[in-house]
Design a protein around this nucleic acid. Structure first.
Lengths: 182, 182
DNA sequence: ATGATTATAGTCACATATGACTATTTACTC
DNA sequence: GAGTAAATAGTCATATGTGACTATAATCAT
């Protein structure tokens, strides 16, 4: 549903064809959201089929004929409805990708710290990338700011975790229990 | 992969059957991760098939026979490998569920604010729930702390957004452009 | 002329996770 | 004693998203 909302939102600013939408999303949103071409085309087709979008072939002698999508009145209504729904409902973030932090005490601190430093470097790299096209103001500015906040928090948090590992205050009360084979 | 890591990690503490694993995850992790019974059973089967787990039928006259899974040496190796890999690699959080914030200016502030307050209330409710079983210390403690940090940040952020909406400093430079029909 | 690249359109098999459902045995309630 | 709940095991259709691939016409480099 959020993906449809995004497409409708973009098409509300101006009509576009799929390739253009894909480019835009890829260029400006690929750091924060996953949304790939096949999905875009599929959703455009679906929304056209239910009357939220209108499709017009554009034969401008250029390249393969473009299918330009524009939003219909029904589409505008749907957009508003989706927007209200999505704004009001918070969907909890999934932390499954952070589960490894729960098992820190299965590795020696000597081994753990470089791994965590590596992870931290990746977050920092992403942060810099996001900050670099911060100047792209417009409707996506809040998204960018939010992501920056998030990444900064993640870095701070990781630094604290690293610090705790170094000072050995991690894991089960009673001390670490990583295997004896290293 | 992170789900397998979790199962291996839990089975490393003690052998268990699927129902038990499901209960544990449901009781202690359902606020932070999505991991449901069918997936648990499927992964247990897969890991048994590749020799990471050993399955033993337990006929203790109680209820339907339990399949108790215990981790094998190969499983321990796999666990370590997955753990290293997962610790070192940061997978960016997907912000698709926050895309609605990019379209705030399609609604009037009068309508937006209550929706956002509702969203905020949901985050707060979740935060309280998580904080309430914070005392559950143990290997999942870092996860809980992390999630608390995250939720606190989300609340702060949302409050700022609401404030900006109220003072009308949102959206395209040049002012809001929500439709005239309300 | 030819081969590579770009702009545009997709498609399709695959992987993943879940909701809803089915089974079985014992214990507990009325 | 009959019916419901609890403890255990799954299965399976369905939904979703993506990677890798196909297709076509025009332009550009050599």
């Amino acid at each position: 549903m959020e993906r449809k909302l995004l497409l409708l939102g973009l098409l509300q600013m101006q009509e576009m064809h799929g390739y253009q939408l894909n480019e835009m999303i890829d260029a400006h949103l690929s750091t924060s959201i996953d949304f790939k071409k096949p999905t875009i085309y599929k959703l455009l087709g679906q929304m056209r089929d239910v009357g939220w979008l209108e499709q017009r072939e554009e034969e401008a002698g250029n390249r393969p004929p473009r299918r330009v999508y524009s939003i219909t009145p029904a589409g505008r209504d749907a957009f508003k409805a989706l927007l209200r729904e999505s704004l009001a409902a918070y969907k909890p973030t999934d932390f499954i990708d952070h589960i490894s932090l729960a098992f820190l005490d299965h590795l020696s601190p000597a081994e753990t710290v470089p791994l965590l430093e590596n992870r931290k470097a990746q977050i920092q790299a992403l942060l810099h990338r996001v900050q670099s096209y911060d100047p792209h103001q417009g409707s996506m500015q809040l998204m960018v700011e939010h992501q920056i906040r998030h990444l900064e928090m993640e870095i701070t948090w990781l630094e604290e975790v690293i610090e705790r590992v170094v000072t050995k205050g991690i894991g089960m009360p009673g001390g670490t229990h990583h295997d004896r084979n290293e």
